[in-house]
Simulated scan of single mutants.
Amino acid sequence: MSAPVLAKPQLRGLLAKCLQFYIITAFILSLGCATMYNFGVAEPRKKAYQNFYRRYGAVKDFEEMNQAGVFQYGKP
């Protein structure tokens, strides 16, 4: 009986092959994280700002703060 022949190890291009796999994987994962951040954080934040400023009245807010005594005119 003869011993099984072992496959030769890959010596040339091993780093390039591994880097190609890791670069593609990193690109796909970063794209996925950016997409999740966009739909999970950025879009709800934009909608919250739009809803706030849709109902916000600057003049009304100023009058309420003025009546509450928040502003001090000419007082040191």
Rank of each mutant, 00 (worst) to 15 (best):
M1C: 02
P4E: 00
P4W: 01
V5E: 01
V5A: 00
V5N: 09
V5S: 08
L6F: 06
L6Q: 04
L6V: 03
L6R: 12
A7E: 10
A7K: 07
K8V: 04
K8Y: 09
K8W: 08
P9M: 06
P9Q: 06
Q10N: 12
Q10L: 12
L11P: 03
L11C: 12
L11V: 13
R12L: 12
G13H: 08
G13E: 04
G13R: 10
L14C: 13
L15P: 07
A16R: 11
K17C: 11
K17Y: 08
K17D: 13
K17A: 09
C18I: 13
C18T: 13
L19K: 11
Q20G: 13
Q20S: 15
Q20P: 12
F21K: 15
Y22P: 06
Y22L: 14
I23C: 14
I23Q: 14
I23L: 15
I24P: 07
T25F: 09
T25H: 15
T25W: 11
T25Y: 12
T25R: 10
A26T: 08
F27W: 09
F27T: 08
L29T: 11
L29W: 12
L29H: 12
L29G: 05
L29E: 12
L29M: 12
S30T: 10
S30E: 03
L31S: 10
L31G: 10
G32E: 04
G32Y: 04
C33N: 05
A34M: 07
T35V: 06
T35Y: 10
M36P: 00
M36E: 02
M36Y: 05
M36S: 09
Y37L: 11
N38M: 13
N38S: 13
F39R: 12
F39E: 13
F39Y: 15
G40D: 09
G40W: 02
A42T: 14
A42V: 14
E43N: 15
P44Q: 06
P44R: 10
R45N: 15
R45M: 15
R45S: 14
K46D: 13
K47F: 08
A48E: 11
A48G: 08
Y49H: 08
Q50M: 03
N51Y: 03
Y53P: 00
Y53A: 00
R54N: 03
R55S: 02
R55I: 03
R55W: 03
R55Y: 04
R55A: 00
Y56S: 02
G57C: 01
G57T: 02
A58H: 02
A58K: 02
A58M: 03
A58V: 05
K60S: 04
K60I: 01
D61K: 01
D61M: 00
F62G: 01
E63P: 00
E63M: 05
E64Q: 10
M65K: 02
M65C: 10
N66L: 10
Q67Y: 05
Q67V: 03
Q67F: 03
Q67S: 14
Q67L: 11
Q67E: 07
A68W: 01
V70A: 06
V70G: 02
F71C: 10
F71H: 05
Q72A: 13
Q72D: 07
Q72P: 01
Y73V: 04
G74D: 08
G74R: 01
P76F: 06
P76T: 03
P76N: 15
